[in-house]
């Protein structure tokens, strides 16, 4: 084991409050990542003095909306625009909203494909 990693599952409603608290405690935003399972799993990863903390939010696939945390962490705009462009999740209240033009790609939301078990892929 290289390091201990803590993952806490929270609801979308709790997200902003939790993120605010972490920011107050001096945590650094490491990344925001998204994984398409049956629903979207969005991971907000933080770090403070090599202490690894991950907040996990599950977002339903049919109406995928998450609040932006750019009010707390300004630099989160890159990750949130990425999630919007690649997964098609709507992000509310982005500080810099590229409206889908952060990644210049031909396919809309290419990462929004269901994982093994679904037959719709070619």
């Amino acid at each position: 084991m290289i390091e201990k990693q803590e993952t806490i599952s929270i609801t979308i409603g709790e997200l902003l409050e939790k993120v605010c608290r972490l920011a107050g405690e001096g945590y650094r935003l490491v990344q925001i990542g998204c994984t398409r399972l049956d629903s979207f799993q969005v991971d907000y990863t933080f770090d403070k003095d090599y202490r690894f903390l991950n907040l996990r939010v599950l977002v339903p696939a049919d109406k995928a909306v998450i609040p932006s945390i750019t009010g707390v962490y300004w630099c989160a705009f890159t990750y949130e625009n990425e999630i919007h462009d690649l997964f098609g999740i709507e992000v509310k209240n982005l500080n810099i909203d590229y409206a889908g033009n952060f990644y210049r790609i031909a396919v809309e939301a290419p990462f929004n494909v269901s994982r093994p078990g679904d037959e719709e892929k070619e």
Partner: peptide, 29 residues
């Protein structure tokens, strides 16, 4: 710092391989 999120499902294919590279984190700064 680079970070990889890897998720396996017990088959030979991974479920998810996500990379957050240092340049991506440094775009904001």
């Amino acid at each position: 710092e680079v970070i990889y999120y890897i998720r396996g499902n017990g088959t030979k294919f991974l479920d998810r391989f996500r990379v957050r590279t240092p340049t991506f984190a440094n775009i904001g700064p």
